[in-house]
Amino acid sequence: MTAGFVELDRVRLQYREGDEFALDQTSMTIKEGEFVAVVGPSGCGKSSLMKLVTGLMPPTEGTVIVNGQEVTDPISIVGMAFQASTLLPWRTTLQNVMLPLEIVQPHRSRLRRHRTEYEDKARALLAEVGLSGCEDKHPWELSGGMQQRANLCRALIHEPRLLMLDEPFGALDAFTREELWDTLQALWMEHRFTVILVTHDLREAAYLADTIYVMSKRPGRILEVRKNDIPRPRDQDTSFTQPFVDLVHELRDHIRTVRAT
């Protein structure tokens, strides 16, 4: 058996005893550095998957292995970002991005003495997503797209090896969203962390992912694993090419059958 970086083995998840399973017989093998998208109808347990992999919730049955170790508690090699940016309004953008450093070891104990070094790192990361000059602004002074960029930086500042994204661009307008796809792709190609992106936007999945998992309605199961070999870097023009359009159609058909059953 080739061990993946993230490995789910016949995982079932039940929130309370007697409840319907949120996830059922879910197995996944994700290689280190792979960009994975999970798509499915709403309520299919995509968010439960987030909680399982990050160790916020233990599986009812089966095992979750990340980086060779079974996940039982929260693991700090992971960064997370949600649809709501949840930036803290009393902190500046820079302070928001640096929040994880105040929590995760070994940065936590190094932060006081190496503050400028860490600040430079945060500034560099902000520059990478196009937020130079916004360091000292408060989140409410930023647009929704800028907030999500800062949110990505916060998720990445402690150099996690696994990035978990739960519909991070769901609340943005179409243009901003597509800009952020490019931002995320550039970040990923530069740093090569592993990504699990939960989304209901099929174009987003096709644009960003190496592998796309299609999930069923509740109880969530994985119905289809689709490799996506469209060459990178993908750009707006790619999304009008035939392979891309075909892939989106194929995914669309899957979702349609899932919803119909």
Partner: peptide, 29 residues
């Protein structure tokens, strides 16, 4: 406190006290 924010912090290994000091109290001000 927003559950997402709690999840983000907890996944980083934040203790209850961390969450209280970094987010809880400033937010309650």
């Amino acid at each position: 406190l927003e559950p997402e924010l709690r999840d983000v912090l907890r996944s980083l290994g934040a203790t209850r006290r961390d969450i209280l000091m970094k987010v809880g109290f400033p937010r309650a001000m």
